[in-house]
Nucleic acid binder design. Sequence first.
DNA 1: GAAAACTTGTTGAAAATTAAACCATCCTGA
DNA 2: TCAGGATGGTTTAATTTTCAACAAGTTTTC
Lengths: 156, 156
Amino acid sequence: MEGMSEPRWLDAAQQRDWRAYIEGSVRLADLLDRDLKAKHGLTTAEYEILVRLSEAPDRRLRMAELAEYASQSRSRLSHTVARLECKGLVSRGTCGDDKRGVNAELTEKGLTFLDRAARDHVTTVRDFFIDVIDPEDLKAIGRAFSAVAERVGKVR
Amino acid sequence: MEGMSEPRWLDAAQQRDWRAYIEGSVRLADLLDRDLKAKHGLTTAEYEILVRLSEAPDRRLRMAELAEYASQSRSRLSHTVARLECKGLVSRGTCGDDKRGVNAELTEKGLTFLDRAARDHVTTVRDFFIDVIDPEDLKAIGRAFSAVAERVGKVR
DNA sequence: GAAAACTTGTTGAAAATTAAACCATCCTGA
DNA sequence: TCAGGATGGTTTAATTTTCAACAAGTTTTC
């Protein structure tokens, strides 16, 4: 089966849009990273974990679920939660029914820490993303990336 | 100046769109990374460098420019180009006028290697991004992220 | 024309991420 | 019931990225 067919290349406009997306998203991610690190000593990955935990019932989730919500591999999550535990922002405990399971829980300290970080973060997101984009275009982004997430999800 | 004013939080729709973007973009990036690595042993960062070089006059650029085009720090670029040089895909030489300058150049081998990788890559981009998105929404993404890139650019 | 200030690119170590091996627990079916 | 296989999570090692310090070259300033 080595009859490699000619790929359908992107047309000029698609190419331009795709490139714009790559450049914009990389630069934005870098900025958010630096911002979060400078002001609160947090990685974006760490921040994401704190957010998901804060929204969970009892501010607690099993590692596997947390990994899913935060779009991280389990291995990565283990390392990152270990770091957050050192900082006292998260604590780990076994979960009742399944003895393999581990629950990560946001500590009191973690919650107040997150509150502060979230304020700054949302301001930056606004400054460099939301406020720069036409509201209709933002909706389009929501639609588009929901579709992408779903499409990619099927293959994981 | 510690009169921290209340941040303007995102409204429900903005929140939803922002989250969708984060999730979709992270999952897409992961997928593209894995795909490129599995099929060609390349990082996305490495791939990006090869692409920029291939488009430059004489397939050659100064490190600083390359860093700019590929949205990478100079340090990171140094390391990455070193790796690519080991693989024989890129070569480095001093540049004439400014003795501090270093030119990175795509080798013949690098070019043919990139050709193959690009085929597969564009196919995956199509499968999981372009073809999943309404054409009008893609245009919106182009507009929006151009604006974001410009906005972020000003602050670097 | 020389000192100060800045730019370019690299380096080495620390931090983070990925990949693969691993252990313990849980589930399934014969 | 118990053997085989799957699942959940951690761990170790390899790879990649970041951070800070640096050497060498250029520009500015006086």
